[in-house]
Structure formats: structure tokens, C-alpha cells
Design a protein around this nucleic acid. Sequence first.
DNA 1: CATTACCTGCAA
DNA 2: TTGCAGGTAATG
Length: 277
Amino acid sequence: MPELPEVEIAARSLAAQVVGRRITALEKLDWERMVETPGLPDFCALIVGREIASVARRAKWLLVALDAGWTLAVHLRMSGNLIVRGPEIWPDTHTHLVLGLDDGRRICFDDQRKFGRVRLLDAAGLRLLDAAHGPEPLGDTFSAEALGRILAGRRTKLKPLLLDQTAIAGIGNIYASEALWMARLHPQIPAAAVPTAQVSALHAAIRQVLAEAIANQGSSLRNYRNSYGERGRNQDHFRVYDRAGDPCARCSEPIMRVVIAQRSSFYCPNCQRMPVG
DNA sequence: CATTACCTGCAA
DNA sequence: TTGCAGGTAATG
């Protein structure tokens, strides 16, 4: 479910509610596989008593910085949400991890499909997590030239490369299709075959699509909610994602759905042509 | 590169 | 009943 924009909104809405609060208890954990590291006794012992210093995002990871140098790293995967609830609301069957706070509220990790994961990392662990990901597409270092270097020499298809978190961080299945439509690039073009002018177009498209989605509070197709439990509205602005058969906004040709690297992909067969050859 | 696995729920 | 879902890791 959540890609960069959704995780960004989740981080912001969580920060607004919990920075400065102290974690007083691990009140519920009914899906132990959710905690990847450290082991459960250590996780519980280390997290209780920590104060929340800040909340940030790296790639699709939520980073909750705690005191004493620890960071709670949370990956929402397909259906996870971090939602802050008051003491009067006891969460539902999809709430698998609950952190009690010193003001009586709780941070609830809801996850219908149970793919979400958390890690409690020290500074070294955080550096490793960071180093495992490509550049932030909305960051200063992500230039058109930087994107060109990422594409150069790669024989993989363009869309799967956009989904590779070690190449570029944070892009998922929705925004890959959306950015390719905006840049008029066929999703199956070999990455190295993208013409230079189109590399610039793709760079701009990636940034525009992600920035628009953040401005719209993320996309809520099914499960996604911010940390207040509210839906995003970017799903009302998709140009191609989940719109097979609809007319292209540029040329009215019907949008196609194809499967590339085992993922649904949406594109306009007229606007997004493969170069000849 | 493709397949399978991890899970649950929903719509066709 | 089947297929599909915003992600990722582990296998041939």
C-alpha cells in the first residue's frame, strides 16, 4: 500500500501528535513476527521509557527517533497504518502492536495483511538501513543527471527499475505508472535506452507526481490512513493507475493494463510508445 | 528473469 | 471460487 507520499504523510501526522511524548508500555503485541530486531525481550525492555524526539521518513520507512540513540523503524508494507488513538478507543482485530504513551493515548500499528515490520535500530543499524536505499527522489541530490547515471548501462525494463529501492527510494507501483505516463515513456523500454531528453522529463515527472500526491495527503485505495485515521484523496487524481479502459487524459486512447515483472502496470499505448527498434 | 511465499479481505 | 491488492525477500 503506502509509497513515498503515504509514508511522508504518515510521518508528518504522527510527528504532530507524538513528538515529546514518552512510551510507557508495550500494551499489545499479538503478531510477534512483526518485530524483526532485536529479540522480543530486548525490544520490550529497550522501547519502554523512551521519549519520542522526532519522526521522519527514509524511502518507505517511517523513522521514529527516540532518546538514548535508538530509532524505531517501521515499514507499513501493503496494508499497515500507524494511528494514534485516545484511551477510550480500544483498537480492532487488525491492531497488532500498541505503544502506550505518557498522556494516555496509544500508537497503534494496524495491519490487515500482517506484512508490516518494525525494527529498533541503534545508530549503526540506522546507517545500514540508509545505505541500502537509493537517493530520495524529492531530495537535492536527485538531479536529472543523477537519474541518467542510474539508468545508464541497465538492461532491465524501466518500470521495474523505478520500483527497485536500491536504485531510487520510495517509488511504488502507483507512482511508477503515473510518472511514466507523465514522461510519455513506455514502461517496458530498456532503462539504458531512454533518450537524454526523456531522462529529464522522467526526472521532472517523478518529482511532480510524488509532490502532488503529498499535497493530496497520499492515495487511499483500500487501507491507507494517516495517523489521525483519515484517508488521502490522491486516488481521485490518478491519470492511469487502476484506470484500464478509461480514455487517456491527453489523447483519449483507452488506458491499457499489462503485467510487467509480476506487477500490474497501466499506460497509454498511444502516448507512451516504444522507440522503434 | 520468473516463481513462490508471506497474510487477509474483497469484488468479479 | 478465483484473482487481485499500494511491498519485499527468498528461492530456481
